Amino acid sequence: MKIALPDETGALTDYTLTGTPVPEAKLPANPARVVYSAAHVVADPFTANDPSGVATVDWAATMRFRHHLHGMGLGIAEAMDTAQRGMGLDWGGALELIRRTRAELPDALVANGCGTDHLDLAKVDGLEDVKRAYLEQLHAIQSLDARVILMASRALAKVAKGPDDYVKVYADILSDCDHPVILHWLGDMFDPQLAGYWGAETFEQALETVVQIIEQNAAKVDGIKISLLDKHKEIALRRRLPEGVRMYTGDDFNYPELIEGDEQGFSHALLGIFDPLGPAAAHAVDLLGQGDAQGFRAVLDPTVPLARLIFRAPTQYYKTGVVFLAWLNGFQGHFVMLNGAQAMRPLPYFVDVFRHADACGLLRDPDMAVQRMKRLLAVYGC
Rank of each mutant, 00 (worst) to 15 (best):
L241V: 00
M247T: 05
K231M: 15
N217H: 08
Q193V: 11
R238A: 04
A155Y: 00
P192D: 11
N254H: 15
V169T: 06
I226H: 04
L194A: 08
Y255V: 04
I173H: 02
T249Y: 04
G250E: 00
D164V: 08
I214Y: 05
S227N: 02
L156M: 02
P242W: 00
A152V: 09
A171L: 04
V210P: 05
L194E: 00
S153E: 04
A200Q: 11
Q205R: 11
G199L: 07
W185N: 10
M247G: 05
D165V: 12
S153R: 08
D176A: 11
V159A: 01
G162L: 03
R246L: 12
S175Q: 14
V210S: 07
L228M: 06
S175T: 10
P180H: 14
L228A: 02
R238W: 01
A155L: 01
D172G: 07
D252Q: 14
A157V: 09
D191T: 08
W185K: 01
A160Y: 06
R239I: 09
D230I: 00
A160T: 10
V181I: 01
E234M: 03
P180I: 13
D178V: 15
S227R: 00
K161I: 05
A236C: 11
S227E: 02
G199E: 07
G250I: 01
W185F: 04
P163H: 04
V210L: 12
D252R: 08
